[in-house]
């Protein structure tokens, strides 16, 4: 489903990771580990195509992934249901009800998203993944600000997703109780020679 070979990742003109290679098959989850600043977020953003890779190749089915970053992309003045419906329309799918059920958001459906707590907002952000209907999930610290119960909801959602033939690439430090997640420790891929070759960055 996703094949990354010899990938080099940069952030702000500094090379963070080099020679990263892995494969992700349907039904599989790959957990990225490593200390803060090692390049987990940058790797995910590179795979998502939000920033260019310095070298290497990324192969996956076009338009096959959904990306969730630290920010949830929630509009404070829209209700929970309106937020989800918007993303369902953008991705041309339906499943708003099922997504709200999975994250126990049905009682909050009319609530403006700005009035949600941090954990509830995060649940809404994760529910967005379900309405995209995309097979590959790229998740950056998905469990931040979730309580134990909500982490359980997320673990169930991701297990169901994997069983349905999906795949997930996630950066997390929490053990989600996945059956056999492959763990990729990123520290060994740390770039030896940080190079600045981004011309623009010199002026910023």
């Amino acid at each position: 489903m996703l094949e990354v070979s010899d990938l080099s990742v940069t952030r702000g003109g500094v090379k963070l990771l080099e020679g990263v290679s892995f494969k992700l098959a349907a039904g599989q989850a790959l957990v990225l580990r490593g200390p803060n600043g090692v390049g987990k977020t940058s790797l995910l953003r590179t795979v998502a195509g939000l920033q260019p890779a310095l070298g290497g190749a990324i192969q996956f089915e076009p338009d096959g992934f959904a990306y969730a970053s630290h920010a949830d992309g929630i509009k404070a003045t829209l209700s929970v249901e309106e937020n989800l419906t918007f993303w369902a329309q953008i991705f041309g799918s339906n499943g708003v009800e099922a997504a709200m059920m999975a994250y126990d958001l049905r009682t909050l459906r009319e609530r403006p998203a700005g009035a949600l707590s941090a954990g509830q907002g995060r649940r809404l952000g994760l529910a967005r993944l379900l309405v995209t209907g995309r097979p590959l999930w790229l998740l950056d610290e998905p469990t931040v600000s979730l309580d134990a119960e909500a982490v359980g909801m997320f673990a169930r959602a991701i297990k169901a997703h994997l069983q349905a033939g999906g795949a997930a690439l996630l950066a997390t430090h929490i053990d989600l109780g996945l059956e056999d997640p492959t763990v990729l420790e990123l520290s060994p891929y740390k770039a030896k020679t940080p190079v600045t070759d981004d011309f623009d960055e010199a002026f910023l």
Binding site: G49, L50, D63
Partner: peptide, 13 residues
Amino acid sequence: EDGSLDLLATSPL
């Protein structure tokens, strides 16, 4: 600011 732009950039639009 709220991250929607990243999400829109990775959406089918």
